[in-house]
Design a protein around this nucleic acid. Structure first.
Lengths: 205, 205
DNA sequence: GTCTATAAGAAGATAGAC
DNA sequence: GTCTATCTTCTTATAGAC
């Protein structure tokens, strides 16, 4: 990895732990193994480093869905996976989703950084809500819609059904971001949540 | 309100909007209508102001439940309220809860400040999780337990049922903290969520 | 308790040699 | 591209008069 990229990587780590304002260019340079002035040969300011991280994220998220072992951009192509979706498969899907978001290094650091900077301006607020509310609800809504279409679950309001599936996952994720030692407890609640979800939507309507 | 208290009030507003590190003692003093050095007659440092806000919160939250028009500390005493709990009453409860958390000035500012400072140290992380995860789940779990006991809803896993009730409320709250203009949309989803919740838990088991 | 003046130090960024 | 030296500005905090 070249220096320019290593700067982004170390800056992201520091920003996600301490917040933009509490990280000094000296800290970033030290982690990279150079002196602060050298850093300005790669980026014209501390803010430019932050902006470059946001830009890089926009490129990476295009491939995110693939990392979840789902096609991501073509839900119809994912339908095959959900042909025989039973409770255990749904639990596996939810835990994989949760574990990926929680443990993938880049995803976790970016989410934590955005958590700390979300009120800075309207654009960052939109990036956060887009990534952790609109996009998951849209995509998971398509998947659950497919499962409903196949008669494996039943709902006359798939968007709300999706909110019921995703909101507990999101909340448990924020808990583990703050207190990683609560992950076992979160995983237990997550599994119970999905089994209950499956029972609730598997029996009604 | 005396100067000492006004300092806390203005500091909380600024911290919740910009984060601790991006607020300067000059900014706080200006809002209060004094010069920065005068501020040091009331608090020995900027950090001491932050600490005083956290301390004040610990006192205020004792009375929080009462502001929600429920007893709060004695769920058994609240049982009366839920004697005739139908879907519309449950919707009202959820929307009141949501609206209180979102619009109560002190609650909103404190939550936003804590959001920005939650990774600073273990103690702040615990305050956040305690206030917005453990406490709501514990208390709402007691209320839902009462409703289940009265046969108005049914569940063999009240903690997970509580997670299903609260997690969407929490997630929608975080959306509105970032993008207040999305409140109408959030309220619509919130009402649909609770009506669906009532149907799901009203028909099973 | 509030002010003006100022100390003390931190932090972002630049200049110019190598 | 990296370094040392340095500039400039900002920020917290104190001193001491009123």
């Amino acid at each position: 990895m070249d220096t320019k990229q290593r700067i982004l990587d170390e800056a992201l780590t520091l920003f996600s732990e301490k917040g933009f304002a509490n990280v000094f260019v000296t800290d970033i340079a030290e982690k990279v193994g150079i002196k602060a002035p050298s850093l300005y040969k790669h980026y014209k300011s501390k803010q430019a480093i932050f902006d470059a991280i946001i830009d890089e994220m926009n490129h990476r998220f295009e491939h995110q869905a693939q990392a979840l072992s789902i096609n991501g951009t073509d839900p119809a192509a994912d339908a095959e996976i959900y042909k025989n979706m039973d409770e255990d498969h749904l639990v596996r899907l939810g835990i994989d989703l949760f574990s990926y978001y929680l443990h993938d290094s880049y995803t976790r650091r970016f989410r934590k950084m955005l958590t700390l900077e979300q009120f800075k301006d309207k654009e960052l607020a939109k990036v956060y809500t887009g990534q952790y509310f609109d996009m998951p609800l849209t995509y998971q809504g398509m998947l659950l819609g497919l499962i409903v279409a196949q008669g494996l679950l039943a709902s006359d309001n798939v968007p709300i059904m999706t909110l019921h599936f995703y909101a507990p996952i999101y909340m448990l994720l924020t808990v583990c971001d703050r207190e990683p030692e609560r992950e076992p407890e979160a995983l237990k609640l997550l599994e119970e949540h999905i089994r209950q979800f499956d029972k609730l939507y598997g029996r009604n309507f």
